[in-house]
Amino acid sequence: MSQQTVSTLDEFMEGVWRQNPTFVMILGMCPTLAVTVSAMNALSMGISTALVLIASCWLISMVRNIVPKEVRIAVYIVIIATFVTVVDYAIQAISLELYDALGAFIQLIVVNCIILGRAEAHAAKNPPIAAMINAAGMGVGFTIGLLSLGVVREILGAGTLFGVSLFGADFQPWVVMVLPPGGFFVLGSWLLLFSTLERRKQRKLVEATQNA
């Protein structure tokens, strides 16, 4: 029993940390750079993608035994497009303001490589529950990736966080951060931070083995 719990958690954490779509696999860069001008946009985009990911992986896993491999890509795309349409309508019903802010990037979830990649690499080979857990992990990982960009860009570029002003009226916003180049600056900085941490960890590992 405990063995199974560990593997389930492992399955979930794969997407959150070890195979994080944004910082490790560098997938889904189009929405990552384009919609992360504010924390709210980043969070809603992350949640939308996660919902599509979980629902599509569930359905793809359910039908995995009846789909001939010749037509599997067509089937995946139809299923993903269906759930993107559902999310699209749901966002319009919740808030038109948010819908306008996210623009075409909601519809573009259809061609997000994280989702098609998960469908092909995981959901098509695993039972529904495992596929959903793995997809949820990836969704959470992607949301964390988007949020870490959105939070930094909103604080620096607008002086606010989730729309709440942080520094008062005297703050001079660093406008380039909410423009497209700012997305690259912030993403590059995060990648630099993570690879530095990774390298330091490996160096310590080498030193530890040499000393032993």
């Binding site: 001939p68 067509a74 089937v75 299923i79 269906t82 349409t85």
Partner: peptide, 19 residues
Amino acid sequence: MIRTLGLLSAICGLIIVAS
């Protein structure tokens, strides 16, 4: 192949119209 594609399209169509 046709059966699978047809069946899935029908399911997906229903989901979209319902939403």
